[in-house]
């Protein structure tokens, strides 16, 4: 005997609908809960970071106070480095000039007078002066070309710009010297 149920289709439909509704409700609530969790996590992170920043600010203040207490040594160190930087440049230039002057004095024979002596930055020297007689002038020029001593600078190039004969200062010369300045 076969059962005849006229509500079968409706029942299936209702069951499906109930199941769908249940799923929708459940997932909605799960979504809401998850969202709540995300908000809580972000909020906690916000609080933690804020707290961390406050701590860091306090530590920074402590460090600043410590640095302020060491201001005396800091100012000395700043002073020292600033001046040493300038001094390094000056000393190099000073030594170069000093060496050039000593070399020129070494090269000048007795009876020579230097009227003009100017050092340029690249080691070029404008040297002008006078000699009492021709022999001294010759000696001087010979010194420029030949006289070499390891304790003095070496002459790289000599340009004699002019030699003149006058009344007061008999033999006048004007030269440009270029020295080897090492590095």
């Amino acid at each position: 005997m076969k059962d005849i149920n006229f509500f079968k289709d409706s029942l299936v439909k209702l069951r499906k609908k109930a199941r769908r509704l249940f799923l929708i409700k459940t997932w909605s609530l799960i979504t809401l809960a998850s969202y709540g969790l995300v908000i809580s996590a972000v909020f906690s992170y916000h609080l933690l970071t804020n707290r961390g920043n406050q701590n860091l600010n306090e530590k920074i203040k402590q460090q600043e106070a410590l640095i302020e207490s060491l201001r005396s040594i800091e100012s000395k160190q700043v002073y020292l480095t600033l001046k040493t930087k300038s001094l390094t440049q000056i000393i190099n230039s000073q030594r170069k000039n000093q060496e050039i002057v000593k070399t020129i004095l070494h090269l000048l024979p007795e009876g020579t007078a230097v009227d003009g002596f100017n050092i340029e930055e690249d080691g070029k020297v404008n040297l002008s002066g006078s000699c009492l007689n021709f022999k001294i002038l010759k000696n001087f020029l010979a010194n420029l070309y030949e006289k070499e001593d390891d304790s003095f600078l070496k002459v790289k190039e000599v340009k004699v710009r002019g030699i003149s004969y006058g009344f007061e200062n008999p033999y006048q010369f004007n030269t440009i010297l270029q020295f080897y300045l090492g590095e």
């Binding site: 000073q94 002057v101 004095l105 000048l108 009876g111 230097v114 009492l132």
Partner: peptide, 18 residues
């Protein structure tokens, strides 16, 4: 001059050796 304070640098000079 090189090692005397304050720091100095010779810029130019004239000299009469005699």
């Amino acid at each position: 001059l090189e090692t005397t304070t304050p720091l100095m640098k010779i810029e130019s000079f004239t000299i009469a050796l005699e």
